[in-house]
């Protein structure tokens, strides 16, 4: 879903990281009972998707991949949270009760996580991972964390390939008998993968120190904040201030009052 030359793609990763984190922070701070605010956050996210030339269908398609994980975590909350019972069912000796507080907590988790996931989809569609890491580096995020993420991204596929090769080698010599013993074999495979990873780590470290590594990774910085970045950040912050301060409700309310006044006249 890589977009070409959209507004968000042209932006410096720092401005996107700051803006997206601000949105996530505001969403987390907003009480779930202010559901209208979340509608407005959703509108802000949709606007960002629009300027990124990401179609809503594409946005939701990618988001849906992660949402089941959130649902899995949140699905038990309505039953576990104590409070005023909304609905209950008895199955044999067990009574399952859904509480008001549980439903609100469930909504709190699902709504906030889903909106955050949509933001992540937009960010990953408009920023390459290396640019994202460079952005984090320039924002003074600890080097160790950035290195960890960089190595994880670089070697996760290499390790997956290695694991697949081990699985293939096993399946070619496994004919469906003595299945209990297979757990032991899987344990061996995990061990082998660990040893290979450790040895690879040693070789990678050797390659790094040969090329002058002294504990700090530095890369060529070609990123530069432009006027467009500042405009984007300003636009995001103004939208957030309007939502958080409830300014939009006030405008809406004053319109209604004006209408009443007009009718009164």
């Amino acid at each position: 879903m890589k977009c070409t030359d959209s507004l968000l793609e042209r932006l410096d990763p720092r401005s996107k990281i700051i803006s997206f984190l601000a949105i996530i922070f505001c969403m987390i701070s907003t009480p779930i009972t202010r559901l209208k605010d979340f509608g407005l956050y959703f509108l802000v996210i949709l606007t960002m998707a629009f300027v990124s030339r990401i179609k809503p269908a594409q946005l939701f398609k990618r988001g849906v991949v992660l949402i089941p994980f959130v649902l899995f975590i949140a699905m038990f909350v309505p039953f576990l949270k104590e409070g005023h019972v909304l609905w209950s069912v008895k199955i044999y000796a067990w009574t399952f009760s859904v509480t008001y507080e549980g439903v609100w907590t469930f909504l709190n988790i699902v709504v906030k996580s889903s909106l955050s996931i949509l933001l992540i989809v937009i960010a990953s569609s408009t920023t390459t991972f290396s640019d994202f890491l460079k952005g984090l580096d320039l924002l003074r995020i600890p080097q160790l964390l950035i290195m960890l993420m960089s190595f994880m991204y670089r070697y996760i596929f290499v390790l997956l390939d290695e694991a697949k090769r081990l699985m293939r080698a096993r399946s070619l010599r496994y004919f469906g008998h003595r299945y209990k013993e297979q757990f032991r074999v899987i344990g061996y495979m995990i061990g082998v993968l660990f040893i290979r990873t450790f040895e690879r780590a040693e070789r990678v470290y050797s390659a790094m120190i040969i090329r002058g590594f002294s504990g700090k990774t530095i890369s060529v910085n070609y990123l530069k904040l432009s006027r467009l970045d500042f405009l984007f950040m300003a636009g995001t912050f103004i939208s957030l201030i309007c939502i958080v301060s409830g300014l939009i409700y006030k405008i809406e309310h004053s319109k209604i009052s004006d209408t009443h006044l007009w009718h009164g006249l």
């Binding site: 390459t128 960089s150 390659a207 002058g212 530095i218 890369s219």
Partner: peptide, 28 residues
């Protein structure tokens, strides 16, 4: 003196080719 490893995956540890190629000169 530079060394090129047998397995290039050991040598290319950065996220992009440019980052990998510039790693040495930057550290110099």
């Amino acid at each position: 003196m530079g060394m090129i490893f047998q397995n290039p995956d050991d040598q290319l540890f950065c996220t992009t080719v440019m980052d990998d190629v510039s790693f040495g000169p930057i550290n110099l």
